[in-house]
Design a protein around this nucleic acid. Structure first.
Lengths: 370, 370
DNA sequence: GTGAAAGCGCTAACAC
DNA sequence: GTGTTAGCGCTTTCAC
């Protein structure tokens, strides 16, 4: 039944509200017979504590907001899954309110400037447009942790992987496979995002560390972060006569688009062109060929982010802590492992059954830095 | 500043709480000077109405739960996106709490039997395991609308597409392409889900309507609803000597797995084998070849579901209403349109740029039934 | 070990 | 037009 209140239970059992509350919360100092009597009343009336009443009294809502551009992007849907599981496993058992910013500055502002306060205890936000100054100004006193390599003011906590290092390692892996003309695919046509910027820096470092020249022609931007745009951009580059033997992609969507453009032109992967993507989304295991990818440790990312958020919610008020979590290269058919690769390499090529979730196919693991 | 209450604003402005409340809610009967004075106090103090206090008083939380198996499945992440947009556009401006059931009966029970009441105003649930009796019993008085073709008690509202009809149309399209050995791929090895059951029925009807024999060999089940499992199952079927010239897939994940299995064996798509998937997920446009797919009108699904949910929240207490929304066949390279196809067909093959979201590539549209 | 009562922040019916 | 006041359902001191 709806509308059964704590008071109703108390009256029905002939006790005070406090006693019922004690039973509901399994407080130790309630006598066994009393506990049983109250429990019977609860069962008979079908009492369910009202969440809102409780929240008003305690000041905690048990809700956190998870805000990012768009759940449809596989990286974000996988992140949402990991975060909601991790949040539920938290001591406080948080639940997740989904907020999409559409990747626009208006969307990001809207998420931060909600007209109501107190709905959520805290927020996990992956920004991409707002400046760090604006983030610092707007978030007010809402406990918050930033996700990803986007803008982040020093005053706010943030968790990310080292994008420069990851791009360097991935690019070096392609070089170690014997590739000499490694192109970068998928950054914005204009107005480079923070993400693209860092990955390109790493790409360049990887080239340089292997003594490969950096050619401007080998930078292939796309009109939008989407696989169809990447397919078109890569196709046009090829048709324009640009030649490359490997593709370092900004993300898996770009990589999947590239795969298609190569297929359409009868170019063999990885024989003619090796491909590495980024994010290690579930699809990578079943594309043809399966896709090697930079695999951020999202479980660790979620864990660390929620841990810091919980501390903020509990009142921690220090300066922003910036944490790095590890990543690895998940090697599959599109850019297999090889003896030349540095580090402990395990080749997961052609294992359609690889436990991708657990990162079982990975290699070149990079450990958590403090 | 945090912790500024309505009362603080009232005192600061030297008026009553009611007046402040009137200003906050833009009530008409407040004099202009008074409104300005109060607004100044609000701004000076940085007042934000507290969501929980408001919710306790009004009894509405402005939150709805969206519960399904797993956000990582593209169909669900796309659904989450559509629902959260549609919910925000609602008169009441609902926000969405994400709940995952993991596709297990325990998960579904947990979602329905949350120990707290009142957190959300209503729930959109896509069940797959629970019996309709259990759904009816457990949901209690929580306003609820069921999504999809799973179990649904007559007492509860539900929105879905006509799975049997859609499978029939898709199968007929394959037959009209001249295919005579059309296999069905991707249903459960044992314990058929409601979804698979209905799609297989439609598949069979499609075969029969075109005078094609139904062969048990052409039913290719998979160990799990996942593309790697489908790749393995289709590969094994081929290796076992099963021959087919078309694949009707239970969902796009199965179709993508099938694509891979066919590629690995050098089988040409669609020349040797045509493929149709189900759900029309975004990836379908960039697979190689791009994938034809049954495209449910999820925008309409979300709209109708939220409309009915809003009515339930507003107290409507009639018997369960079961609504169908339309679907279409999004035709791409893996099973292109053709002159033989019935209905208004538009061939979207090879249009990597097709506006898949808008279903622009579709054909054979089926209209909303009452 | 149990009960009484004062809020938590807001809304809305009712009075002025 | 504006102010008063009684809740919404729960938690939580503080007495008993």
């Amino acid at each position: 039944m709806a509308g059964v209140r704590l008071q109703d239970v108390a009256e029905h059992a002939g006790v005070s509200m406090k006693t019922v509350s004690n039973v509901v919360h399994a407080h130790p100092n309630v006598s066994a017979p009393m506990r049983e009597r109250v429990q019977r009343a609860i069962d008979e009336l079908g009492y369910r504590p009202n969440a809102i009443g409780r929240r008003l009294a305690t000041g905690r809502t048990g809700l956190i907001a998870l805000a990012f551009a768009d759940v449809r992007l596989p990286y974000f849907s996988e992140l949402a899954n990991v975060v909601s599981k991790a949040a539920a496993a938290t001591g406080s058992g948080y639940r997740v309110l989904l907020e999409e910013t559409e990747g626009t500055i208006e969307g990001e502002r809207a998420v931060l400037s909600a007209s109501e306060a107190g709905l959520v205890d805290g927020m996990l936000l992956q920004p991409s447009q707002m400046s760090s100054r604006e983030i610092a100004e707007r978030h007010g006193d809402l406990p918050m942790v930033l996700l990803g390599e986007g803008p982040a003011p020093l005053s706010v906590d943030r968790v990310m992987i080292d994008n420069v290092a990851a791009a360097t390692v991935a690019t070096e892996h392609l070089a170690d496979l014997g590739r000499t003309r490694i192109a970068f695919v998928g950054h914005e046509n204009e107005g480079l995002s923070w993400t693209s910027r860092q990955r390109i820096v790493g790409y360049q470092q990887g080239l340089e560390s292997r003594g490969l020249p950096v050619e401007h022609d080998l930078l292939i931007p796309t009109g939008a972060i989407a696989s169809d745009e990447a397919a078109r951009a890569v196709g046009e580059a090829i048709d324009r006569g640009i030649r490359f033997d490997a593709l370092m992609c900004r993300d898996d969507l770009a990589a999947i688009g590239a795969l298609r453009a190569l297929h359409e032109r009868g170019i063999s992967i990885p024989d003619d062109v090796a491909v590495i993507g980024w994010d290690n989304i579930a699809f990578d295991a079943t594309t043809f060929p399966s896709l090697s990818s930079v695999s951020p440790n999202t479980h660790e990312l979620a864990r660390v982010a929620l841990e810091m958020l919980a501390e903020r919610i509990d009142g921690y008020d220090g300066i922003g802590r910036h944490r790095l979590v590890d990543f690895e290269l998940a090697l599959r058919e599109s850019a297999p492992g090889s003896l030349q690769a540095s580090g402990a390499t395990s080749d997961a090529a052609s294992d359609v059954d690889a436990d991708v979730d657990a990162g079982a196919s990975g290699s070149l693991s990079h450990s958590l830095s403090a």
